[in-house]
């Protein structure tokens, strides 16, 4: 009986570990919306969303919808699969900032901050995010 209990615990523990690793993997989004668009490209960026949530103060530090210079985004619209919140829904090829400029501006805005202002150094150069295999 004791042995059976141990086996059940071991199996349950394995499932928890497996689920945990799967969830951790799904956290890393591959930013490849540039795929298919014209222009010169580097490899798509693996983006650990949760890590950025931990670092950032609020969702609206990155996600935005500007009206008259004010970020009026409704945070409840930030749901998975909602295409209206994709960067590409506003930053098209004819926008003031195209998708590439929007990505670079958004990411490098924080990543280029002086090291002394950051606890742990984020990638600072192109290849830190556009990783070659």
């Amino acid at each position: 009986m004791k042995r059976l209990g141990f086996c059940a615990f071991f199996i349950a523990f394995s499932f928890v570990l497996l689920a945990n690793s799967l969830l951790a993997q799904s956290d890393v989004m591959i930013l490849d919306s540039m795929k298919g668009l014209p222009g010169k490209k580097r490899p798509p960026v693996p983006f650990p969303h949760n890590l950025h949530v931990e670092k950032g103060g609020s969702c609206k530090d990155c996600h935005h919808l500007y009206e008259k210079g004010e970020n009026v985004l409704d945070e409840s619209s930030l749901t998975e699969g909602n295409k209206e919140i994709f960067c590409s829904s506003c930053h098209g090829s004819k926008a003031r900032l195209n998708l590439e400029q929007a990505y670079h501006g958004q990411c490098m805005g924080c990543h280029k901050k002086p090291l002394k202002e950051q606890k742990k150094a984020p990638p600072r150069y192109c290849g830190g995010c556009h990783i070659r295999k």
Partner: peptide, 13 residues
């Protein structure tokens, strides 16, 4: 080296 990401990338950059 930096383009090919050889050696320690941040140091090379």
């Amino acid at each position: 080296f930096a383009y090919h990401q050889w050696f320690h990338y941040e140091t090379v950059m």
